[in-house]
Every structure is written in C-alpha cells, then in structure tokens.
Simulated assay, not measured.
Amino acid sequence: MQADTLSSIPSLWRLYAGAAVKRGRPAGDSLPALSVSVAGVRADRSQVKAYNRVCGFEQQETLAATFLHILSFPLQMHLLVHNAMPVAPMGLVHVRNRIRQYRPVGQEELLWIDCTVGETRRVDTGLEFDFNTRIEANGEPVWESVSTTLSRMPGKAAGNKPLRQDQTPPEPDETWSLPPDLGRRYGAVSGDRNPIHLYPFTAKLFGFWRPIAHGMWSKARCLAALASTIGNKPFSIDVRFKTPVYLPSDVCFSRQQVESGVDFQLYSTGGRPHLTGEVAWL
C-alpha cells in the first residue's frame, strides 16, 4: 500500500487542472493499492450554510451525512490524479454510493479523513472500482462510505436500464422543480465543477444534450426529505444512480417505510428512474 499523508485538504482547482490533462485506461482487472489521509479538518461554516440551502437541509449545528462526502471528495481526486493510477478522471461515471453515519458530527469538530482505492470489478461496460473513505473524530469512527465509479470501455454506455413497461412508479410523496442553474449552484458549494453539470454547450462536449444534476445532489436532496424520519439515529443510506437528471426538469420523490428503515426512489414525471435507495438503521 502506497500511503500519502497530507497536511491539509488539497485544492480542487489544482486537482481538476491535473485531471483535465491526464490520460489512461485500466489494462487489467486491478488498480494499485493507494491511500491518502489528512488530519485536523474542520468544516467551513459558510460552505455548510450554502450546501444546506442548495440541498434542502435545515440549518443546524451538525453536518449532513452527504456534506461529509464533499468534505472528503478532494482525497478521491488526489488518488485519481496520482501518477500510479491508470485511469483518466474525465468521463468517469458514479454508479453507486453507500454512506454509514454512526453519530451526528458537529460543525466544529476536528476530523481525520482517510481514503483508499478499494475493490475492482470487471463489468460489461468497463471496470468498476471503489473508493473507501473513513472519518474519525477524537479517534472515534463517525462516518464511512463506499463510492463506486465506472471507467467505461470505448463505445460503451454506462449500462443504465430503462424502466420496464410493466413497472408502474409509485405515487409521489413530493415533486421538485429543478432550475437550469442547479448544477452551477451545487458545483460552487461542492467544488465539483464537471462540465457536464454546468451549461448546455459544456454538457454537449461530453454527449449530454443538456446539463445534468450531480448524482450526489440527488442523494442529498433525498436525504434532506428523510431527515425528520432519521433524526439522530445511526444509519446507512445506499443509492444506485440509474439515469441522468437533465436540467431544468421536474422530478418525483417517493418513500416507503419498511422493517429495516425506508426505501425511496427519485424518478421523472414520466416514470423513468433516476435513483433508488434505502435507509437502514444500524
């Protein structure tokens, strides 16, 4: 394992500059064993406030579980641009994300964050690989996640399957109208300024006819809708990203209470699934 220890969270601007020019493609079914960690990280209150506003969370003294993803995201980018990593960052597809939060995390807490390249899987459309992230406060594990990303083979789509004709989406509990600048607003608070999320002309450069919403915005908005149900309980929230959410658009959110927690969906007004997920109590 090649492990880097940083003195502070790296600059996303610098990392994106490196990502824009990096080329590469996995030659086999494995990736190098790499990790990176940083201690003494504290959330920026103004960023937290802006993030909560964009994603629909109430303003409070604890951090949304999905905010901890964007706090640790620069470490994923650090690994992606690493010289030993044979993957081109541009064009990667985020396909799944699992978060476990063991207790609420306060805005003022000092955090230790560690990110590691995890398991890899050869699939029909390319190579899937995981980023495993852990966060501790005062030596206590408080949060962890597994983000699964797809490096596509040339000519292969992401593999999302459309809703079968015999499937009927549930009645929505809520309907949300997403504005055309949502990708730019979320990009400003998260640091994720991938061109596919920003403007029609930048999205078209990567094959999208309109900008698309960030997958982690969609997950965060669903989590905000479930916040009163979750409260301060330890929980996990798993999602699978199905199809892009084009901007602007209206989307439907539905939830169903189950024995283990809550199942939920995000889908278009025409019934096309964008995201499916589950909240489970730990």
Rank of each mutant, 00 (worst) to 15 (best):
M1I: 07
A3M: 06
S8K: 06
S11G: 09
R14F: 05
G18T: 07
A19M: 08
A20F: 09
V21H: 01
R23N: 04
P26G: 05
P32R: 04
P32Y: 09
V36L: 01
V36I: 02
A39I: 00
A39W: 00
G40K: 07
A43L: 09
D44L: 06
Q47P: 01
K49R: 15
V54Y: 05
V54A: 10
V54S: 08
A64H: 07
T66A: 07
T66E: 09
T66W: 01
T66L: 08
L68S: 07
L68E: 06
L75V: 02
Q76K: 10
L79F: 09
V81E: 11
N83P: 10
N83S: 15
M85Q: 12
V87P: 14
V93R: 07
V93T: 04
V95H: 00
R96H: 06
N97C: 06
R98Q: 13
I99E: 09
Q101F: 06
Q101E: 14
Y102P: 01
G106H: 06
G106S: 09
G106I: 06
L110I: 00
L110G: 00
I113D: 04
T116G: 00
E119H: 12
E119V: 11
R121E: 13
D124G: 13
T125V: 13
G126R: 10
F129E: 07
T133W: 02
I135R: 03
A137P: 05
A137W: 01
G139K: 04
G139N: 12
W143A: 02
T149S: 08
R152A: 04
G155N: 08
A157I: 00
A157T: 15
A158M: 09
A158V: 07
N160I: 00
N160F: 13
K161Q: 13
L163I: 11
T168F: 01
P169K: 04
P170C: 07
E171V: 15
E171I: 05
T175D: 02
L178N: 03
L178D: 04
P179Q: 11
L182T: 07
R184D: 01
S190T: 05
N194W: 02
P195E: 13
P195C: 08
H197I: 12
T202H: 01
F206G: 02
G207R: 12
W209G: 00
R210Y: 07
H214L: 10
H214Y: 08
S218R: 12
K219L: 11
A227G: 05
S228P: 01
K233E: 10
P234D: 11
V239C: 13
P244Q: 08
Y246H: 12
Y246R: 08
L247W: 01
S249A: 15
S249E: 10
F253L: 15
F253H: 14
S254L: 08
R255P: 00
Q256M: 12
Q256K: 15
Q257R: 14
Q257N: 12
Q257S: 13
G261W: 06
D263Q: 13
D263A: 14
Y267A: 03
A280P: 01
W281L: 14
L282A: 14
L282K: 12
